[in-house]
Every structure is written in C-alpha cells, then in structure tokens.
Computed example of a mutant assay.
Amino acid sequence: MTTIASRPEVLRYTAFSSDPAGGNPAGVVLDAGALDDGDMLAVAAGLGYSESAFLTAPPEGLDGPEGRTYRIRYFSPKAEVPFCGHATVAAAVALAERQGPGPLLFATQAGPVPVDVTEEDGAVRATLASVEPYVEDVADADLAEALAALDWPAADLDPAFPPRIAYAGARHLVLAAATRARLADLAYDFERLEALMHRLDLTTVQLVWRESATLFHVRDPFPVGGVVEDPATGAAAAAFGGYARELGLVTEDAVLTLRQGEDLGRPGELTVTLRAGDPRVRVTGAGVRIG
C-alpha cells in the first residue's frame, strides 16, 4: 500500500450531465502509477461512487494518439470491473480540461476503447466507442430468479423486448418494463439479486421502458458493486444499443436517447449512436467537475 503522502490527487466528476448535481459521479485518478490494487479499491470504497477510474501509462504496443493514450482500470466500492462507461466519460473530460479536446485511447480490460472529446460553448462532451457487443439468451430459471429478486411479475414485462444478456465491455441483463410506473417502482432484494448476478457474471441489470421509437428511460441496480442503483450507466447503454440492434428493435442507423437518474433525483442523459456496418456502439455524454 502507498503512504498517504505519496497518494495522487483524486478528482471528482459527474458524467452524462453538465450539472454537478446530475448524472453519475465518479472518482478519477489521472496518475495512478503509484497505487496497487488495494489502494485503488480503498480509494473507490472511500468515495462510495459506483465506480472510479485509475489511469496509468499505456501498455507497450498499443497504437494510439501520442500523449493521449492510457491504460484505465475501474473499481467499484467492492471490486474491479472490466469496463465502466460513466467513469470513462469522466476521465476523458478531466483529461480534456488539461490537454484540450480531441481523440483519446483507453486500454481497458475489455479491450481498446477510443474516445473523442469535444467542447462547444463551454460544455465538454465525450463519445466512447465500445468493444464489439454480443447478445445471448437467458435461461428461464435465471429470468424467474431475477424477477423474483426484483419483485416484478412476468406480466409487467414488455413482450416486444425479450429478456437477454447483453455485452459491450461488461455483461448486463436487459429487462423491459411495460409501463413507466413499473420502472419507477424499484425496491428489490439486494442479496438475492447480487447472488444471481455473481453467478451470471453480470455488472448491472438494465431495466428499460420505451417512451417512443428512440427515447428510453432506464435504471440499473448494481448490488455487485455495493451500490443499490447506478445513476447513469454508459456500459449498460452500450450493451443496450447492441441488444436493440441485434434484435431488430431499432434501425441499423439510429440515435437513441436514454434518460436515467430521474427516479434518484440525479437526472442524466446518454446518447447511443448505431452505424450500419460498424459493430461498435457509441455512447455520448457531457461531464463536469464536482466541487
């Protein structure tokens, strides 16, 4: 473990909102080279945010923009996670404030993730391009256990959106509510859902309700990270984009708006862009420093 005197500065940013009181907060350490795994976990646990990002020098052989390529790791208060969208956006915004907007490349455990940062009228926005997504079926028994843990009757699901496990850097169980009221009523069995998620290697459960063809409201229980609910979830947004395209629920070229955090009093907005012929899913959001 590093000594207190040698620990680098821990920054605090929110992602998917330009309001520090909105979106999803993340810790960001821009120079984590002196920290070991225990240090990173301790920082993340001390902050209590759903994830924090830790940047170090890039691995050898990674071809990215000079001076703008990094290895990035993500820790929840309980454990390391392979990929986190909101902490990626937060880190990208923090770097842009120091280096200016432009391209970045992050080496994540899930693979290389390019990020493009822009600034317009003082607002900084970052767009990440996910690793290649996939979708897989969920067993009937596992679905029944998830619904029991959520206390959601199967009749409250939207039949147009079949339950699936979706991946775009991390695994998420996608469940669609038939009504906004169903989505708003979230009081689940923390330990029961956590146990199922560990068994299925899930990062969050992506709960969605479709308001219109391209507008969705989403919520993400995150008990495996030690957090009841994630306020704005970029990794799940990317996975959902891949899911919606794979199942033909949206057009091949589509721009989706995901609103998240409203039920927590931390509203945020995620833009998901799909391009025909390109497997990557792009997730865009604003970011701003807290405090």
Score class of each variant (00 low, 15 high):
residue 41 L to F: 05
residue 206 Q to E: 13
residue 280 R to V: 11
residue 5 A to Y: 10
residue 74 Y to V: 07
residue 221 P to N: 14
residue 254 A to Y: 12
residue 129 A to H: 15
residue 125 R to W: 05
residue 56 T to L: 08
residue 64 G to A: 09
residue 1 M to K: 09
residue 277 G to E: 10
residue 226 G to L: 08
residue 255 V to M: 02
residue 285 G to I: 03
residue 280 R to E: 10
residue 112 P to I: 10
residue 229 E to Y: 13
residue 8 P to A: 05
residue 101 P to F: 07
residue 189 D to Y: 10
residue 57 A to C: 14
residue 164 R to E: 15
residue 75 F to S: 06
residue 227 V to S: 03
residue 243 Y to V: 02
residue 45 A to I: 04
residue 284 T to I: 01
residue 151 D to G: 00
residue 75 F to V: 04
residue 121 D to G: 09
residue 48 G to Q: 06
residue 262 E to Y: 07
residue 275 R to N: 13
residue 265 G to N: 05
residue 167 Y to S: 06
residue 202 L to T: 04
residue 218 V to Q: 11
residue 47 L to R: 02
residue 287 G to I: 00
residue 253 D to F: 07
residue 129 A to G: 14
residue 229 E to C: 06
residue 131 V to D: 07
residue 230 D to C: 00
residue 86 H to A: 00
residue 251 T to C: 01
residue 245 R to I: 14
residue 202 L to E: 14
residue 217 H to C: 07
residue 72 I to V: 12
residue 28 V to L: 12
residue 217 H to V: 04
residue 136 E to T: 11
residue 121 D to W: 04
residue 262 E to C: 08
residue 4 I to T: 15
residue 152 W to P: 07
residue 24 N to P: 00
residue 103 P to C: 06
residue 83 F to G: 15
residue 133 P to E: 04
residue 272 V to L: 01
residue 242 G to H: 13
residue 266 R to S: 13
residue 15 A to E: 11
residue 179 T to Q: 15
residue 96 A to H: 10
residue 164 R to L: 13
residue 242 G to I: 01
residue 274 L to P: 01
residue 23 G to D: 00
residue 187 A to C: 12
residue 218 V to H: 08
residue 233 T to Y: 10
residue 76 S to Y: 07
residue 164 R to P: 11
residue 173 L to V: 15
residue 147 L to T: 02
residue 128 L to F: 12
residue 134 Y to D: 12
residue 51 E to L: 06
residue 115 V to A: 02
residue 2 T to L: 12
residue 176 A to F: 15
residue 98 R to L: 05
residue 217 H to F: 08
residue 51 E to D: 08
residue 182 R to E: 09
residue 108 T to I: 02
residue 109 Q to C: 00
residue 62 L to H: 12
residue 273 T to V: 10
residue 113 V to F: 05
residue 279 P to M: 04
residue 239 A to W: 12
residue 277 G to Y: 02
residue 283 V to S: 04
residue 232 A to F: 02
residue 265 G to K: 08
residue 189 D to T: 10
residue 288 V to L: 07
